[in-house]
Design a binder for these strands. Structure first.
Lengths: 346, 346
DNA sequence: ATGCTCTACCCAAACGTTTGCGCCAATCGT
DNA sequence: ACGATTGGCGCAAACGTTTGGGTAGAGCAT
């Protein structure tokens, strides 16, 4: 296919066919397969044939330079090594590919300085838009004036500043867990709430505590503990919650990693999951089902979020009005929340 | 900063200063801070001041078009949602950023058609090189003639076809586990070997079985089972290995996910980890330590692999000769491999 | 004064596209 | 048969850089 002299270009094709490059361009870009517009049916066919015989691929730099459209989008996440995030990204990538977009994805580690720097970096690459998965509730990094010209949407986390976002309906998710705990008879419960700057954690927590308040059992402040979004963070928080007197009978960890950390802590404290302690996580990670005690978890449509985010961004780029979306979660009950507690424990 | 009229360009700066764009270009590109080459010290300073007052960012499309260098690299992985892969990518991204490169990263799901398609896609984006993390042992997808002009290196997995690769020293890793099992007195052992097309699995398996053969205890073929690289795959394989007669007393799962699947299977079969069954995994995932029974696992330097891969690629792009690298793993012993087995079990 | 070397710039041609405009021939309406 | 339309294509100017070649003047030695 290739291999003659240098990469094959529009001019290469045009010259070989005795045509002008503009003609070739129009044929190759025009609504493919249509006749009558760009060139005679015959010429068009010859162009197309030669083009894919030579393996022609338009030079995206030239195209972007000319059209001021790069078909590139920047994607920011706290860390791709978290499976939830990685799965959202799979959705993003899938949909982006489908729409002819390529993505720059980068890890910001939830550090504001890095966030700003990476935003600058993708902007420097002249992306058409960004998908931001690491927003903090205060939306600080998004106030950067450098972002002014470039459309963006949030995914995974929302902000308080009203930017369009695609999230899981986190308050509902928290509420589902609360319903479940209430149905099992748990009255003394606790929440491992994640980072205070991430809406995922705070919204799930709020949904949960709201429901308990409605049930007439408001949670005291010390039963809600913030922590890092990983196993170690969950472990620490769990130790703090479980080792005092008046131990809660059920714990809601706002993500599965923290839940696994909680399992570790429970193990260390000699508590049996599903018997001495009910535990629920969030996200229904593939691991949840395989754990020695399978984990009750809220299933959230992660890849779906990613796909929606791309579509939302595209609409924003096109200048259409857009609204935030919250995808519906579902509770998956497993052994870790065990059976209803006996009346003695109530 | 910006915000006047359109994005700020070289010409914008040149005009404002009454200079020619080439002068501005040379100043802004020349070995920064040096005097004497491109322009008078004074002019140079004025250019630089105006440039960052206006927030000038070179248009990468124009630069790439002109220089035929994009500072882009394509990165292929089976699936970023696997933490091992995601962690390697973190290393890639970190090093790439450091070197002024941006990355397109994409999931191929280990599907040859997708691999080819995505290779085509990043090539179409005119990357300077690729980092391939999803190679199959036969190197099939890498024979694509489209790849001919573009340098690439492998990471994570090697091929039999001799392409430069950065991997963990997987045979050594397998060997370490074998040593450990032997030291504990296990004579009837099994391997959950992962996908047969991935060198990670096969090399770890080979290292393990080699050591057992050297010890005079060669593994019968039915004690090595291939499976998908996830919890479900590990689960299935473990059930097959553990439910027959003559059950092995120790299992080596070539990655932590498969090990977790094995835990699930052991749980279902009523086997206690570290007592009835010793289990070791690979990669020392952050989860390994938090599991209800902490998992013995081989620690491999993952982010490090990513960083090395970028450096190797850069050398290849520069036309320097390169050689494969194998990074040294380390065994981390935890409760899942328990105590030495009693003489009765031997 | 002449020739020479620097310094400090400018000129212009690329790189590969896209796109408004214009031109020529053929077709059409009358 | 003649002006108007249209199909089919070419022209050329951008888009923002980089880079090989100038050139004008200053400084210097001859």
């Amino acid at each position: 296919m290739a291999g003659d002299g240098g990469p094959v270009t529009l001019r290469g094709i045009a010259d070989r066919l005795g045509l002008h490059v503009s003609t070739v361009s129009r044929v190759l870009n025009g609504p493919s397969g249509e006749r009558g517009r760009a060139a005679s049916g015959d010429t068009a066919r010859r162009i197309r044939e030669l083009a894919d015989e030579l393996g022609y691929r338009p030079n995206p730099h030239a195209t972007s330079l000319r059209t001021r459209r790069s078909n590139l989008v920047g994607v920011l996440f706290p860390r791709l090594s978290e499976i939830v995030v990685a799965t959202i990204y799979e959705g993003v990538e899938e949909e982006a590919t489908l729409r002819g977009l390529s993505t720059f994805v980068t890890n910001t580690h939830d550090d504001p300085a890095t966030q700003r720097e990476r935003i600058g970096m993708v902007l420097g690459r002249r992306v058409d838009g960004l998908i931001i998965g690491d927003a903090h509730l205060d939306g600080a990094a998004l106030a950067d004036p450098a972002l002014d010209g470039t459309p963006f949407v949030l995914v995974n986390r929302r902000t308080d500043t009203g930017h369009p976002a695609v999230t899981c309906d986190d308050p509902l998710g928290g509420r589902l867990v609360a319903e479940h705990f209430l149905a099992l008879g748990h009255r003394r419960v606790a929440v491992i709430a994640g980072e205070p700057f991430a809406s995922t954690g705070t919204d799930r927590t709020a949904g949960f505590t709201d429901r308990y308040r409605e049930a007439g059992l408001p949670l005291p402040a010390h039963r809600v503990r913030h922590c890092r979004f990983d196993t170690a963070g969950g472990h620490e928080a769990a130790v703090a919650l479980l080792s005092g007197p008046d131990r809660p009978t059920a714990v809601f960890a706002v993500n599965d990693l923290a839940a696994i950390g909680t399992m570790g802590a429970a193990r260390d404290l000699g508590l049996r999951l599903g018997e001495d302690l009910a535990l629920a996580g969030f996200n229904d990670t593939p691991l949840a089902a395989e754990l020695p005690v399978p984990l009750t978890s809220v299933h959230s449509p992660m890849a779906e979020q990613g796909r929606h985010a791309v579509r939302l961004l595209l609409r924003r780029i096109a200048g259409e009005p857009v609204a935030s979306e919250a995808l519906r979660p579902e509770l998956v009950v497993r052994a870790s929340t065990g059976a209803p507690v006996g009346p003695d424990l109530r």
